[in-house]
Simulated scan of single mutants.
Amino acid sequence: MKIKILLLVLVSVVGFSQKKKINQEYDYINNYYQLVYQAHFEYLNKDYQKAYDLLKTAEKNCPLLNQTGIYEPRILAECATFLNKPKEAVYYLEILVRDYGYNFNSIKNDSIFLNIQNTKSWKKLHRNKEKYAKNYIEKVDFNLRKELHQMKIDDQSVRTNGYDEEKAKVVDSVNQLKLYKIVVDYDFFPGHSFNQVGNYNVDNYDPEISVLVMHIRSSKADFWKPILLDLIKRGRASAKLYGNLSDSILRSNGVFDYGIYQNIEKEKINDYGNLDKRRIAVGLPTLAYQNFVYEYWENMFKKYNEQNEN
């Protein structure tokens, strides 16, 4: 009975969403994501000029994002520093502090930026750091953070100590209703790139709920796919969400469309020859890039652990 009531509510919310105007001024799928993935690849390989040039092109096409695992303004700040562009480096550091709530002292103590701290632009950033921090906190919707945190707790409560299918159906239905209302109200899928959500340093709540997409049932996938794709195209949701949704509902079959899981053999991916074409079409990077980044960080963690053991 509860699920039937939830479905009726969903219909009413969907009807409301039809009236919402969608801004499609920017096309991140065609004009941004692939440039950023290429830039990130060059950055990790220490070709800072190529990384800088690619990111500057992406920035001309669309406003910069601050994607988890890439952090575009941070890369540009580092590249600008290495390329002897101190004023530009501070410009991107200012974005991190002002728009994303980064801790100024952690940036100040980073050895990469020591050589630019005698510039006028750096001193100006230093003067404004407290104002930026205050303004950032004022933009955070703490009620939203609490709600997202609780949604994740509820999601995991029916999965952590064994899977309760009946309870999961109810929890997932409620969470999807809440998530859809958030998408309608805020015009984004919650993530740390958006001021209303806030970063990890704001409080003790964890507002990261991308895992909820993995628990959308196949019967609701056709409802969510166009919503996610529209948000991804406009830079209002993480590009990985569409692939996560699509492949998660195929887990029972063991054959996937986007190859989001590691160590999946070619035979387990539908139409493998066109895999990258499908990935790029929804904002995902190529499989080669995905594997490169995974192996890069795996090697970095391995070296870090080896150094700590010695």
Rank of each mutant, 00 (worst) to 15 (best):
K2H: 11
K4R: 08
L6N: 11
V9D: 14
V14D: 10
G15V: 14
F16W: 06
K19Q: 05
I22Y: 02
I29E: 05
N30F: 04
Y33C: 03
Y37E: 00
N45Y: 12
K46S: 15
D47Q: 15
Y52W: 05
T68R: 14
Y71S: 08
T81F: 14
F82V: 07
K85C: 10
K87F: 14
A89V: 06
Y91V: 05
E94W: 06
I95V: 12
L96F: 07
R98N: 08
D99C: 04
Y102A: 12
N103F: 13
N105E: 15
K108S: 04
N109E: 13
D110W: 05
D110Q: 07
N118E: 07
T119D: 00
K120I: 09
L125K: 10
L125D: 01
R127K: 13
K131M: 04
Y132T: 08
R145H: 06
E147L: 15
K152L: 14
K152W: 12
D154H: 06
Q156Y: 11
R159G: 07
K169I: 12
K178S: 08
Y180F: 15
K181S: 13
D185C: 09
F189P: 09
P190S: 14
S193A: 14
N195P: 04
N195G: 10
N195M: 07
V197T: 07
S210P: 05
A221M: 06
F223V: 03
K225W: 03
I227P: 02
L229R: 00
K233A: 09
A237F: 06
A237C: 09
Y242F: 12
G254A: 00
V255R: 07
G259Q: 02
Q262R: 14
N274I: 01
L275H: 00
D276C: 03
K277A: 12
R278E: 00
A288C: 09
F292W: 10
E295P: 12
W297P: 08
N299P: 11
N305L: 04
E306G: 04
